[in-house]
Simulated scan of single mutants.
Amino acid sequence: MHSISKKIILIGGGIGGAATALALHRNGFYPVVYERVQELKEVGAGIALWANATHVLKNLGLLEEAKEMGVLTTNYQFNSQKGKELVNVPVDGFELPVIGIHRADLHELLWRKLPQKQFVLGETFERFSQDKNKVRAHFTSSLTAEGDALIGADGLRSKVRTELFGFKPPIYRNFTTWRGLTSHVPDTYRPGYIREFLGRGKEFGFMMLELGRMYWYAAAKAPENQPDAPMVRKKELENVFQDWFYSIPELIAATDETDIIKTDLYDRVPALPWSKQNITLLGDAAHPTLPTLGQGACMALEDALIVTKCLLEYPEPTVAFQQYESQRFSRTKSIVEQSLLSGQMGQLAHPITVKLRETLMKLMKPAITDSFKSLHAYRA
């Protein structure tokens, strides 16, 4: 192994940034994460960590703890708006488990394994400068940090991306999503199941998290940036989903108003480059995707492992980041495109096209099952 003492600056302390910092730290690098918020925390939502993601957790030495903090998932069930099963996909056929976990629990699991001094909070990235083989990050507080490489893990509207390639807004995909958390468990919950319901231009799903917490998510076609008052989100959802499968309005009614989060959905057309010399992008900063395949955080975890492996194999960060791009682009492009297609299918609203979609899903069950297997069989 070559001499490893490189300082890697990471902008953004979310799941992707924290996982990358931990992977680098475990392999002898000196990562320092700069995060603009004053307190490290993730929003109140759940995620499914598919086998491609739990593979990363295993490599980071976190899998057993993640299993204790989450709930094992065995099936992904697609249903009609009224609750009729369309497709039931087993997802427990891999050598690694699928885990439903709260984002905040996963985030804490990642960052608590890193020395506290390597997380710098309350610093907003402004720009970078490059000098020979060094890079400097400049922050709005006038702080300057110097390192051997810089990784932008600062999300959908990445400032590092803008500084690298100029401002280009992400693409709104005509969908708004709501996410909620409640202690109410409907009598239709099936242990190990993620249940998703598809209607006319709308979707709803729910899954169990640890400690009896039920996480649910909803999506509907909507104009971008609709005026929103947090204290009417619940009423709005109750109206939208009032005639759906009975457990759905039941879950909404059981959720506290403050535990409902509303977010417009965006992505970008997959494109390279992500890097310039000793600076690169990771996670949503590089390849934002719609959440329809549940792969956003999973891809960020994959990125963390691959970029670390490339930095280990290639001592020069510029070369390492080129290799990282070449190894990751095809995979991430495919997922972004599949997620968009899935989202477009979910936007179908005419009764005839919705009925056709349901018929096709039943007929295509083997193909859908194979697609799940292929997606989750990837090992970074």
Results as ranks from 00 to 15, higher is better:
44 G>T: 07
54 T>N: 06
326 S>W: 03
363 L>Y: 14
222 A>D: 15
351 P>R: 05
18 A>P: 01
195 R>F: 12
211 L>F: 12
79 N>F: 12
322 Q>P: 03
93 G>M: 04
124 T>M: 08
290 L>F: 13
380 A>I: 01
309 K>I: 10
225 N>S: 15
144 T>N: 11
13 G>C: 04
95 E>T: 11
146 E>D: 09
176 T>F: 13
299 M>Q: 00
138 H>I: 11
196 E>L: 08
255 T>N: 06
205 G>H: 09
227 P>Q: 15
50 W>M: 12
89 V>M: 11
31 P>W: 01
39 E>D: 15
52 N>A: 02
324 Y>F: 09
77 Q>M: 14
229 A>Q: 15
360 L>G: 10
324 Y>D: 04
272 L>F: 11
245 F>E: 14
122 G>Q: 04
71 V>L: 12
155 G>Q: 05
176 T>G: 08
360 L>F: 12
286 A>H: 04
363 L>M: 14
251 L>P: 00
358 E>V: 06
295 Q>N: 04
107 H>D: 05
169 P>E: 14
150 L>F: 06
36 R>I: 05
277 Q>P: 05
215 Y>K: 07
113 K>M: 13
57 L>M: 08
271 A>S: 11
214 M>F: 06
36 R>M: 12
203 E>K: 12
29 F>W: 05
275 S>V: 06
45 A>M: 11
377 A>D: 01
102 H>T: 06
264 D>N: 15
209 L>S: 10
33 V>M: 02
357 R>V: 08
11 I>Y: 01
203 E>P: 05
160 V>R: 09
224 E>F: 07
290 L>P: 07
120 V>Q: 12
194 I>K: 06
274 W>Y: 10
364 M>W: 04
355 K>H: 13
343 G>H: 03
82 K>N: 12
323 Q>T: 13
142 S>P: 03
298 C>P: 00
81 Q>K: 15
148 D>S: 11
268 R>E: 04
177 T>S: 13
86 L>V: 08
181 L>H: 09
314 Y>Q: 10
325 E>T: 09
299 M>A: 00
319 V>C: 11
116 Q>R: 10
371 S>Y: 08
202 K>D: 07
